[in-house]
Computed example of a mutant assay.
Amino acid sequence: MAEENVSATLIVAEPAARVFAMLADPTIHSAIDGTGWVREAVDRAPLTEVGQFFRMDMYHANHPEGGYQVANKVAVLDPPCAIGWLTGQEKDDGHLEFGGWIWRYDLAPLGPSETEVTLTYDWSAVPQYIREYLQFPPFGPEHLVNSLHHLAGLVAPTSRARTPGG
């Protein structure tokens, strides 16, 4: 794959501030996740600043331990326009190591009650030694679409999400 990122976009029938608030709440991430890997927020405080850390319990059948924990570091926080985090894990010595991939949501208001939401997974900064044992992306692009539909259902359960131009 020549590109080192994948993204999906969906229009949600809610204001950007409301959508952003959902994304800034780690306790909701498992319900948004389109891969089915995110289980529960360990750190439950809302995301409020760049550099903030939050951990999530995860599960993946192909992971050596099955259940595991990731440490995320907020890398982008521009309410209500953008939020993103780097994902890594805590090493045996207690230090955090980030793999070079980032999850990012960009929100573009389309008037007072609609928001275009773009979710991007970018692995362009992943070092070669990680690429030797992990294939990128580790999931298909449909998982990003699933995540956006989950988000739309949570933020505006009675409205209908649509893809741009649709």
Rank of each mutant, 00 (worst) to 15 (best):
P127E: 11
A61N: 01
D93V: 00
P127R: 14
W101F: 12
Y68K: 03
A24W: 06
L86M: 15
E116T: 14
R55K: 06
V126A: 05
R104V: 15
H60T: 03
D43F: 02
S113M: 15
P127G: 06
G100T: 00
H95T: 05
I83K: 13
F139M: 06
I28M: 06
Q52Y: 10
F54K: 11
F139K: 09
N72Q: 10
G99D: 08
P109V: 12
S124H: 07
T115V: 07
L86N: 06
P127M: 04
D92Y: 01
L134F: 12
N62K: 10
T118D: 14
L107K: 13
G36F: 03
A108L: 14
A75M: 14
P79E: 10
A41Q: 04
P137V: 09
A125G: 06
D92M: 00
L107P: 01
V38Q: 06
A75R: 14
N146Q: 09
T87G: 12
T115L: 02
F54G: 01
Y105M: 04
A71T: 01
A45I: 15
N72L: 08
H143E: 13
D43E: 07
R104C: 09
Q69T: 08
A125F: 03
E65G: 08
Y129S: 12
G66H: 02
E114S: 15
L77F: 15
G84F: 11
G67K: 08
L107T: 06
F53M: 10
E49V: 11
E114N: 15
K91A: 08
G67Q: 10
